[in-house]
Design a protein around this nucleic acid. Structure first.
Lengths: 115, 115
DNA sequence: TCTACATACATCATGCATCTAGGTATGCAG
DNA sequence: CTGCATACCTAGATGCATGATGTATGTAGA
């Protein structure tokens, strides 16, 4: 058998995916597939974004006007849908970030992880 | 109109309620209503646990064997269902706490809140 | 006494984000 | 020509939080 299956980091925290997508796009426009890779990479493999979560999220955000999409060529020389933050998306990101801070701080208080 | 409606701290982070209930009960056995009050108080009013979330969660946790329930008199002199952590619940709490740390740290990395 | 409010439990319908599992298509390495 | 990484997508199931609603009791105040 394999060396030890590794518990495998479970799913995402509900509600944080949208925020993280906005954050990644705030740095630089990206296509979906790349966003997922970035998140996994930045988080050192803790966050694994399933495609079945990713694409619905992108469509959700675009429909709400936080994102704009455009077909372009990716770095690998293929067509890809490049997403970028709209002005409304930037505002939304600020709001969600602030809310995350409040929430995680509150949970920290409960869990005795203050500081 | 009222002085300013106050944005009102939105709901909980999906998946964190179970962990927080376990944590509160790790300090001292409590009945449901008191658990909700504690959480709100400890979090300085950021976390508002709806009864429609609370009681299903308690039943969920009891069914899984993390909690044990017993009818006793509350401090206010009424009958109340007092919940306490089982041994399995203690183990579960440790696991969920560890997972929360990993997750929130990972999100912190993404959001540039490392530290 | 009557009313309102806090305590204390509970369920149901709804909404919604995520996951699993499937599918299409292309380009490149072996 | 086979497999893998890239790149997009959807459908169905699951599971949790919410809002609404319901019951019952004790107590403070009018």
């Amino acid at each position: 058998m394999p060396p030890t299956p590794e518990p495998k980091a479970a799913g995402l925290l509900q509600g944080t995916l949208d925020m993280m997508i906005l954050q990644v796009l705030a740095l630089e426009p990206q296509h979906g597939y790349a966003i997922a890779s970035r998140l996994q990479q930045i988080s050192q493999d803790v966050l694994q974004v399933q495609q079945g979560s990713l694409y619905p999220a992108l469509h959700r955000l675009e429909k709400k006007g936080w994102l704009a999409a455009e077909w372009k060529e990716s770095e690998q020389g293929r067509m890809a849908k490049i997403y970028s933050l709209t002005k409304a998306g930037k505002k939304q990101l600020a709001e969600e970030t602030e809310n995350w801070r409040r929430m995680s701080a509150a949970i920290g208080l409960v869990m005795g992880t203050a500081r």
